[in-house]
């Protein structure tokens, strides 16, 4: 990487630092550029929704933040500290695994296909991280997990394995599992896309609760335009690996400024 790293601050300082900052982030697979010079700030407690056609790079944004993908340029900051880099001799260098793990502990994620651990019950899924990763006593981890299973309405299914649960139920357990790690930032990657229409509501209701109750920072990729409009503080429309337009949901959905945004919204609304 021949990038001049001195342009990036070692850490973000000030009163109003964003919870998440993407600064000049680039991502490519070989010759294919997925994200080109992404700059995006997400404030603490903010709910930002990412929409856009498939292949526009929206899921990649979340995957880079969860460190499931490496980046090819730029820096990602979480809670003021660089995630992808660390300070060495006054400049930022690529982070080592220990640093990544420390920063990554602030981030949780839910996936399109739930990815619950199939050999564990709902409760064991939630307890796995607190017990094995955080080193919490089993009793405390169980209390914490049961509280969350209660919140997502899955307490009565605590001893069921994922194969016995419906998609909507699995996704709710997955949300509880992520929250059990007490993240500051939650990522939702098309969490309703693999669900039958009649159970989408049970998952979106849980996310609604989170928006109301917790002081969580959330980033969500979704195709549910109505839901996005309802609960987001801000909506970003991605096109061709860049943010084409971003605004408050009422503005973006009712009065899109860019032609591509209009075309996309028209196409989506027609198909509904």
């Amino acid at each position: 990487m021949t990038e001049d790293m001195s342009q990036y601050p070692l850490r973000l300082e000030g009163d109003n630092i964003p919870m998440v900052r993407f600064q000049n982030v680039r991502k490519s697979y070989g010759a294919l550029t997925v994200l080109d010079d992404l700059n995006l700030d997400v404030d603490a407690g903010e709910m930002v929704t990412i929409i856009g056609p498939s292949g526009s790079g929206k899921t990649t944004v979340l995957r880079m933040l969860m460190t499931l993908e490496t980046i090819n340029g730029g820096v990602i900051y979480v809670d003021g500290e660089p995630l992808t880099h660390m300070e060495k001799g006054g400049v930022l260098v690529p982070a080592n695994p220990a640093h990544i793990r420390r920063i990554r502990s602030k981030i949780g994620m839910c996936f399109q296909h739930f990815n619950l651990f199939p050999h564990m019950t709902a409760l064991q899924n939630c307890m796995e991280g607190p017990v094995q990763v955080l080193g919490l006593p089993r009793k405390e981890a169980e209390e914490r997990s049961m509280e969350l299973l209660q919140m997502v309405g899955m307490a009565d299914k605590r001893d069921q394995h994922p194969s016995r649960l419906s998609g909507g139920q699995q996704q709710r357990v997955a949300i509880a599992r992520a929250l059990a790690m007490r993240p500051k930032v939650m990522l939702f990657d098309e969490v309703t896309s693999a669900l039958d229409p009649e159970v989408i509501g049970e998952v979106t209701n849980v996310i609604r609760k989170l928006v109301d109750a917790h002081n969580l920072t959330m980033l969500m990729v979704t195709h549910q335009m109505g839901f996005a409009k309802d609960i987001s503080d801000r909506v970003c429309f991605f096109f061709n690996g860049a943010i084409e337009e971003q605004a408050a949901p009422s503005d973006l959905f009712e009065n899109p400024q860019r032609e591509r945004t209009q075309q996309f919204l028209n196409a989506v609304l027609e198909s509904n």
Binding site: H113, E128, Q132, A178
Partner: peptide
């Protein structure tokens, strides 16, 4: 499935533990 590795990473589990658990 690859998603199992990703889910383990999302709860910040180290690689050796991910293999074992």
């Amino acid at each position: 499935p690859k998603g199992q590795w990703e889910a383990a990473k999302a709860i910040n589990m180290p690689v050796t533990q991910t293999y074992r658990r």
